[in-house]
Simulated scan of single mutants.
Amino acid sequence: MVLIAAVGFTGVPSSASAAERDAATNSLGASGEAFGINDSGAIAGLVYVNDSSAHAVRWAPDGTPAELPKLSGDKNSAAFAINSRGTVTGWSIAGDGIPHGVRWNTDGTMTTLPPLPNDTFTSVSDINDSDVVVGMSRTSDWPHAIRWSPDGTATALSPLPDDDASTAHAINESGVIAGGSITYDVTRAVTWDASGAVTELPTPAGFESSEAKGINNNGVVVGEAWSGNGLNPHAIRWDPDGTITDLGTLPGHTDSGAAAVNAEGTVAGFSRKAYYEPHAVRWSADGSTTALSTLPGDVTSEARAINADGTIVGHSRSVDTSPSGVHAVYWTKDGKVHQLRGL
């Protein structure tokens, strides 16, 4: 998935090589994060300005960044997903820190995505080529999975029977949504079909909870499973034939998580030692694991999304824990890391 351009955007530029992107990257590399990429190579994310405020950005396939507008009076924003039509979805965040889900349309207009009745704010996760957006509506406590139709109408996605809350993280072109159903102390990976019917995905043996984070058009679902109190998560793949695969970790690591899967079955995510020092990883369709490099001088990284040709986006971080220490990056299929340009 990708991010949309600023007001007046009229289409998705043609694909560009890594060399062309690098040529557009100046010495002011982006302090920020990349969250989505489409099959044309456009990238969605955010850039930090003056080491504080966050600005939703779309990087064209040639590496050129374009800032996306905020809602009137809002201070920060972030873009998380874009479809092949060029429609982008993300957050615009008020001065009080309350996020409002928004959709940036290809004609340059913005659509606010409303919360469910009695909820106070929304967050968004994904959008498909039909302009259907998924995310969460919530108050200060329980989240509620939600689907917004192209006209902005909000529909609640019910959790499993007797559960209290739900999360929605990804949607494919058939309208199948991947997420989680939550009770007080247990989360269960689920999918919702286009009609809204919910189906539980089995939690792997040896784990107590699970959550689905990504889904491709073949119905392959990825996410993670963990033991009590969220300890030692492992990246998991659920195949349509019912096969469940623990994707494991890098050598010497204890934790992992899967964020996205492309049509070939290649998975992007992270591996880490306990809660420390995550490293971006790629799992091939056969389950083999490849560590993805950080930028020179950085110490941690995380992969967020992957497109059809295997390009992965995410971030690389230095020991500096301030916003200036995190860098928006992408990895080409050969595993090489490249920094994206700042505004």
Rank of each mutant, 00 (worst) to 15 (best):
T106Y: 04
V329Y: 01
Y184S: 15
S181Q: 07
P99V: 08
A263Y: 00
K75T: 15
E173I: 08
V132L: 02
T243K: 07
A197I: 11
S181R: 01
T311C: 02
G248C: 06
G45N: 11
S15T: 14
D163C: 08
L113H: 00
G223W: 06
D39E: 00
G287K: 11
V134G: 03
V221R: 01
S195Q: 14
T64Q: 07
R237T: 08
P13R: 08
D129A: 09
S174Q: 15
L295K: 07
S125P: 00
G175F: 01
F35Q: 06
P251D: 09
E67N: 11
P115M: 02
R58A: 13
G73C: 04
G63N: 05
P204E: 12
P150Y: 09
S181N: 11
T139L: 14
Y276N: 13
W59H: 06
S284M: 13
A225W: 05
G342V: 07
G95F: 10
S77K: 10
T122P: 01
I171C: 01
N50C: 08
A34G: 07
R188A: 05
G8N: 11
R317D: 08
I43L: 09
V329R: 09
H55Q: 14
A30Q: 00
V47D: 10
P150R: 03
T120V: 13
G180Y: 08
A94N: 13
I4N: 11
T243E: 10
E173N: 12
G206W: 12
G135K: 02
Q339H: 13
L247Y: 07
A285E: 05
P278M: 07
A328Q: 03
A260Y: 03
V281M: 05
N50K: 14
I43G: 04
T289Q: 07
H144F: 10
V267N: 02
V220S: 08
V337Q: 00
T89R: 02
E302H: 05
R58E: 12
A291S: 14
A212S: 01
G310Q: 09
D126H: 04
W226Q: 07
M1L: 13
V198F: 02
R317K: 14
N105A: 12
L3K: 13
G108T: 07
